[in-house]
Design a protein around this nucleic acid. Structure first.
Length: 752
DNA sequence: GGTTGGAAACTTTTT
DNA sequence: GTTTCCAACC
């Protein structure tokens, strides 16, 4: 039995009990949003609503998974038939039923980012467009935006009729869409656009879904775009039992189509809406909340809210301006190190938030030098990695998929001597005779214009695939990965071509992960099917955990502010708080006032990640795009009331004497970092800084065959010493870290 | 057909 | 400064 009033605050309880009609829950940062949603679902169930009548939509698979788990924990009996999933996988399920009505075959595939690029390349070739004048990226962006706004190629053409500068885009969009259809594929945006268009054109289908989903909930509503808004509105139908949860102040995805006016104008779209504000923050100290409030108050396009906390004020917000980016990184690293060694904190209590990914490099260096455990959260997409794309292309081709795009990818991988020209001839031949590229390979000798040597290679490729197809019959899918690698030599070649050992290791890890995922899928699915597997997983961006080791280790996390959304940490560093970086130049120069507001929201998100302590740092100069740039402290910093700030500007390092003293005056910690770290060989460059680093070439005291120790890589055997002119280049085979090449002057190898 | 060097890019990211 | 991509070379 739920005890809502005991477990929730008044507003949360009201949000839970308001079940009928449209509801807007404005949930400030750290206000217990997910908790409220979970209770709301539980309450609906307790009231007797059938679980299959409830639908919750999220943006990420992670959010969907978490919500599902928490609901299950609370209501174990009937949680399983509640529909909790992402927008995209919801639409995928719909499309799986009705794709044929829109002209696709039943077994359509999903074109992910790299598929999109491949298709766009083809389109450009066909239309004879040049990537310089008409960048492919821009085309894909424009198409994605059009789809977000539910504009078909025809709509787009009509709208931009007569606009000479967009003529090429009109053609590209039309051709791109035709090409997708030809490959029987939908891209991510199509999933939603097609579902909306199905609902609009087929009232019967729509009413079926409306009938089923009587209670709708949408998480992170501030991130919805127009097509998603349309989808929700259609489903909400007449009953309009639509509950959206979000925070307009945390809308930070405008660049990918999010429309903040979906949340700002919710009451206009649904005039009878109940509006509930969750303003009590359970996460941060008073000072952090005050600072966040002060910053966000500078925005105009927002719903007035006043976040408050029952917690004490806590520490002031520290601000530290350093000379250089490296100095900033050293400061952060030293601060973390000293606080961890005092025993009061662990590494995992700290997160460093950055605006752009390039900022991570200096931080990583500073952490590595000091032996601080850290993890860089990067948005690397498992399914988008080359090795996984290649292997899944093999799998699908072997499984009998008739997608030429995938065959093109692997036809000469590893090298078989099948060139681009021959592939094009085969494709043209296939188009004429209605054959797939693979089928064409099976009769390559018939195709005009293909040299006999190449034709033979194509025939061999065909035979290879067919024999693999035989092998796969009745076998387990995950075993096919090994079989493919054995017979084609793909993995072997790829590993041999890997530039570094880390990369090779990563490849192995990825292949294993693919096998593991396939294995799990096969055991959990009644009728395992590769195409179905790919569809499911194409929507799952990160099969690998975002953090390298699963996030359980005791590590400092470095991540972008975007990636930090939804997370919280006891101690947060906000690094690079300079005008020109955060907010960035593009924003500072933008004519669009909304651009600065978005950036400010990002600042709000960053500040509100901190539970106990927030440290803002900046650097007077840093290297950006190859040039040294000097900057002032971020304007966002100046929006924080001075009384909340603890400006730790050390004597002699104040703002007043910035530029004159310049480079000479560096933090001693930076000097330390500079000297001890430069393990990897670097090309000579004539800058001042580099030259001071280069120690004169001195013959090392070890020789080939000696055992040596490296401060990071551990022990190993010297396999080669080459005179590199300015320095000796030493090759060492380490026991655990693999083979590395390094300059003797930098590496400081110790003979054992 | 494969290698290599030079030019251009370069916020932020999920599905 | 670094990485990525394509075009001219071998």
């Amino acid at each position: 039995m739920l005890n809502i009033d005991k477990e929730l605050n008044t507003e949360q309880a009201r949000a839970v009990r308001t079940t009928e009609g449209p509801v807007l829950i404005l949930a400030g940062a750290g206000s217990g949003k997910t908790r409220t949603l979970i209770y709301r679902i539980a309450y609906l169930l307790e009231k007797g609503v059938r679980p299959w009548n409830i639908m919750a939509l999220t943006f990420t698979n992670k959010a969907a998974r978490e919500m599902k788990e928490r609901v299950e924990a609370m209501m174990p009996d009937n949680a399983s038939s509640i529909w909790i999933s992402t927008f995209h996988s919801t639409c995928l399920k719909v499309m799986f039923q009705y794709a044929e009505r829109l002209g696709y075959e039943k077994n359509f595939e999903i074109a992910d980012t790299s598929d999109q690029k491949a298709i766009m390349k083809e389109v450009y070739k066909k239309l004879n467009l040049n990537n310089k004048m008409f960048p492919e990226r821009r085309a894909l962006n424009a198409i994605s935006n059009a789809k977000d706004e539910l504009k078909s190629p025809t709509d787009f053409a009509r709208e931009n009729d007569g606009d000479y500068s967009k003529e090429w885009l009109i053609k590209v969009y039309r051709e791109y869409q035709a090409s997708l259809l030809k490959n029987n594929s939908m891209d991510f945006d199509d999933l939603i656009m097609n579902t909306v268009s199905l609902f609009k054109t087929d009232p019967e289908v729509l009413s079926r879904y409306r009938e089923r989903f009587r209670y709708l909930m949408v998480d992170e509503y501030q991130d919805t775009n127009t097509s998603q808004f349309e989808l929700i509105s259609l489903l909400a139908g007449e009953h309009k039992n639509l509950c959206v949860v979000g925070d307009d102040d945390q809308s930070i995805y405008r660049f990918r189509g999010a429309n903040i006016y979906n949340i700002l104008d919710f009451e206009k779209s649904f005039p009878s809406a109940a509006v509930i504000r969750l303003e009590e923050n359970y996460r941060s100290t008073g000072n952090i909340i005050k600072a966040a409030n002060a910053v966000i108050a500078h925005n105009t396009e927002r719903k007035k809210k006043a976040l408050w906390t029952g917690k004490e004020d806590g520490a002031l917000i520290r601000f530290k301006m350093l000379e250089s980016a490296a100095g900033e990184a050293s400061y952060i690293a030293e601060d973390i190190r000293s606080r961890v060694s005092s025993g009061k904190s662990r590494y995992s209590d700290f997160a460093v938030l950055i605006r752009t990914n390039v900022q991570s490099k200096e931080l990583e260096d500073a952490f590595r030098v000091r032996g601080i455990e850290y993890d860089l959260v990067k948005g690397l997409r498992f399914w988008d990695t080359k090795i996984i794309k290649d292997l899944t292309s093999y799998l699908l081709t072997v499984a009998g998929g008739a997608n030429d795009m995938r065959t093109v990818r692997i036809i000469n991988l590893p090298r078989r001597g099948i060139g681009q020209a021959s592939v094009e001839r085969a494709l043209a031949y296939g188009a004429e005779k209605k054959l797939t590229l693979l089928e064409c390979c099976g009769r390559a000798s018939e195709i005009p214009g293909i040299p006999s040597k190449t034709a033979k290679a194509m025939q061999e490729f065909y035979d290879l695939i067919i024999s693999l197809r035989e092998d796969m019959k009745g076998g387990r899918l995950y075993e096919a990965v090994d079989r493919i690698n054995e017979k084609t030599g793909y993995l072997e070649t790829a590993l041999a071509e890997a530039e570094t050992n880390e990369k090779a290791e990563e490849m192995r890890e990825y292949v294993n992960k693919l096998k593991e995922t396939l294995d799990i899928y096969e055991r959990e699915t009644e009728e395992p099917d590769l195409l179905d597997f790919m569809r499911q997983n194409g929507l799952e961006g990160n099969a690998l955990d975002k953090t390298g080791d699963g996030g359980n280790g005791d590590q400092v996390l470095i991540m972008t502010m975007h990636n930090a959304k939804g997370l919280e940490f006891p101690n947060v560093f906000l690094a690079g708080a300079e005008d020109g970086l955060f907010p960035g130049y593009a924003t500072l120069n933008s004519e669009d006032p909304l651009a600065m507001e978005e950036e400010r929201r990002l600042c709000y998100v960053a500040i509100t990640r901190a539970e106990k302590e927030l440290t803002i740092t900046a650097a007077r100069y840093r290297m950006i795009n190859g040039e040294t740039r000097y900057s002032e402290a971020s304007r966002f910093l100046r929006e924080i009331p001075i009384g909340l700030l603890d400006m730790k500007i050390e004597p002699g390092k104040g703002r007043t004497e910035s530029r004159k003293t310049g480079h000479a005056r560096e933090d001693s910690s930076w000097e330390l970092a500079k000297k001890s770290f430069q393990a990897k060989p670097q090309a000579y460059s004539g800058t001042f800084r580099k030259r001071t680093l280069t120690t004169p070439a001195k013959k090392p005291d070890y020789e080939v065959g000696d055992r040596v120790r490296h401060f990071k890589f551990g022990e190993g055997v010297v396999t080669d010493i080459a005179d590199g002119g300015r320095d000796y280049e030493v090759t060492v085979s380490f026991d655990s870290a693999g083979v590395k090449k390094m300059f003797a002057g930098f590496a400081k190898l110790k003979k054992l």
